[in-house]
Amino acid sequence: MVDRVLPKEQVSAFLDYLRRRYRLWAPVAQGGGFVFAEIDHPESIRLDYPTTMLPPKAAFLPPNEILLSIDMESLESAPPPAEDKPIALLGVHPCDLHGLMRLDMAMREEPSDASYVSARRGALIIGLACVHRCRPEAFCDSMETFRGAAGADLYLTPIEDGFWVEVRDGAEESLADAADCFRPPSDRQKREKDDINRQIDLEFSGRRLSLETLADDLEKTYTSSYWAKLADRCFSCGACTAVCPTCVCFDVRDDLAGGCKTADRCRSWDSCLLKDFAAVAGNENFRPKRHQRLRHRMMRQGSYLAKRFNLPAFCVGCGRCPAMCLGKISPLEAFEFSQKGRTVHV
């Protein structure tokens, strides 16, 4: 890890560098909120954003994509041409950095997903420290995902003079041509950054789950009537999975295109909350009831995938799903239910 400072007056030069070398994605204001979008005009970038409606997942796993096209005459398949430049994701908050790491684990688990690997290849992830809570629904404090540079190639902390930049070992190379933008940090700047980190710890002090036991605790609630009660508030709409940084379930379908000359194999996000998700031909549905589907998602987030990838939890506590949910269902309430009476306040 190397520490640098990106002075305010160098920010626009750095953005120019990023745009030359990468397809730059960053948060912008849109529709009364914020979204990660590909940047045409750097002045539209809003690094002061609280959180985005959708996580940065879409940069590497788009809501809809064509995996391959099959020529209907020759029956030969070809993937779509690769993009000429890799993606740089700028301004990713810690919860979403944790989300991207989990997305990587799921999509790169052998055999790794070719389309994802291709979109992710050479990407530069630039994290941005969260100094304030973004919304009341967020529970990154409980999930302990509110801090840290893990998963980022560069990690920015806003300071008075600009940004403190932690450069991951091995990432200096991708900055070689932008070296002029950075300065060695001064002692004063170091003290300021340390102060900010202490403020962050204070800001996000609060509830903590017992993360070491969460996966097992949650599975013990499997037969509880709690899930049916919770499902009274669930509309099975799938909004929670659509806004989730770690939900990776998808559907694959074949569509005719180009005047029926080609068949496109298309992938789109899917949701385990939707009624037909586990249905098979012949009218069999392996999760026909709403509470079964809601419980399945919570278990995936709190237990199944956590165990699979040896993590405390797959959920990162970003707070998007409770904010989006019509019934205000939060994974936190399910997680806390499973650890009733054992929530720790710090």
């Binding site: 799921a106 998808f250 694959v252 586990a278």
Partner: peptide, 14 residues
């Protein structure tokens, strides 16, 4: 659906 343990459709618990 995918055959590689990613799409989630065939999942039985974990």
């Amino acid at each position: 659906k995918c055959g590689t343990g990613k799409c989630g459709h065939c999942q039985i618990n974990g």
